Amino acid sequence: MSGGTVGTVLDGLLAVAAVALAVSSLLARARFPAVGLFIGFGVVVGLIYARLAAPDLAMAEVAIGAAATGALLLRTVSATSGVATTRASPRSPGRSGARRVAAVVAGAVASAAVLGVALAAVLSVPPRTRLPALVMERVPDSGVDHPVTAVLLAFRAFDTLLEVVVVLVAAVACLALAPTPQTGLAPAPPAAVAPLSFLVRAAVPAGIVVAGWVLYIGTYAPGGAFHGGAVLGGLLLLLVLTGRQPPALGPRALPSGLVLGAAVFLAVAIVGLLVGEALLDYGHLATIAIVTIESSIALSVGLTLAAFYLALVPDPHGALR
């Protein structure tokens, strides 16, 4: 079997697996299996992005779409385990199941139709005017060497700014779930055994270096703010779960860290306007501006992911965070 045939078979299996996992997750009657299927769906989608030569999206999907979101869903299911675990109405389970199947089928048909129209439109465009070719032509003018970073921070920076604001709003909602503004989000630390404490002390500095490296290489290779932020968020959770309370999760530092990414992004945009450039046009300082924005977003993303996970952790007094 040739390499092209193997690739085609693999792509077909991934497509079938993604649809099967999505449908199974929607139709699962129990919450834990539904979350497990959702996590599997995220991993398969990450593999699909990798097959499409989009490693940035693949890493983000697996780290955030599958791992972080899956952890949040598992935490939510554990916190609400006393609630009924089935989705069907006890009065008419058959009718509810039929409606669910019909909704899934209708959604699949509609998605396939939209995808088909979009694919036909893309294939009808002459090769020289397709978007990837246009992006690659303008990458040298963006201030970075990687096309994904150029698109996110230069060519469609306004969209990325709005996405950062959406993440900030979600983080504020998590803060609103904390019992009091004085307690912060970190729960009372449990006692950690000595070997685990030693491993954490060794792993956290190395993890910080890895996060900084992943952030830096985003200027010329797959990586960037969201990937580095995911690593930082994991380090914060590792510290909390092994008996430490990071100062970054304290009541004073946390709000400032959450707003840092959006504030720096907006400040760079305003400075550009003041010096006569267009909105989010960085001029000859594009590289410095993009690295500054990416660094601030990475810190905010790390704190936001930690806040998402810790917001519903029960405190020692029985309050639900």
Rank of each mutant, 00 (worst) to 15 (best):
P181V: 03
V167Q: 08
L273I: 00
P187D: 08
L161N: 13
A102K: 10
L27C: 08
L131E: 15
L303T: 10
T183R: 09
L235Y: 01
L196H: 05
G65A: 10
A289I: 04
L72F: 07
L13M: 05
A267C: 15
R130G: 04
L305V: 07
F38C: 02
A311L: 12
F198M: 12
V117D: 05
P93V: 04
V204Y: 02
A53Y: 13
V165N: 09
R138P: 04
G233V: 13
G4D: 15
T180D: 11
A50C: 08
L37K: 00
S300D: 09
G46Y: 03
F226A: 05
F308E: 03
A20G: 11
P247K: 14
V125F: 07
L279P: 02
L280M: 14
L27Q: 13
A18M: 08
L273S: 02
L299D: 06
V271W: 12
G36A: 02
A191W: 10
R29V: 10
G229N: 05
V165S: 12
E61V: 02
A253T: 13
L185G: 07
R95S: 14
G107E: 14
G46N: 05
S111V: 13
A68I: 10
T183L: 08
L27R: 07
S92R: 11
E294M: 14
V167R: 01
G42R: 00
I270R: 11
A133M: 14
G4I: 15
A186F: 08
E294Y: 01
L74D: 04
T287D: 08
F265I: 12
L310A: 01
V105N: 12
D141I: 06
A113R: 10
Q182I: 02
V169D: 14
T242E: 15
L153R: 03
R156H: 08
L235G: 00
G116Q: 00
L57R: 05
Y282W: 14
S124L: 07
L131R: 14
T76N: 00
V275T: 10
P126G: 14
L260R: 09
Y216R: 00
H227Q: 15
L162I: 02
L215G: 03
A191E: 15
A103S: 15
P222W: 06
R99M: 12
V165G: 11
M1K: 03
G318P: 10
T8I: 13
V114E: 07
L153W: 09
G36R: 00
A253M: 11
T219P: 04
M59H: 01
A58H: 01
A103Y: 13
V214S: 02
V23R: 01
A286H: 01
A194P: 09
M136F: 14
A206H: 09
Y216H: 03
A102P: 07
M1Q: 11
D145I: 03
G283K: 08
T242F: 09
L123A: 11
A202N: 02
A63E: 06
A71T: 04
W213A: 12
R156E: 09
R51E: 08
L162W: 06
R75E: 06
A102G: 12
G70Y: 01
F155D: 11
V200T: 10
G234P: 10
P181Q: 01
R201F: 05
G82Y: 00
A79K: 00
V169I: 15
G46K: 00
V104W: 06
S78D: 08
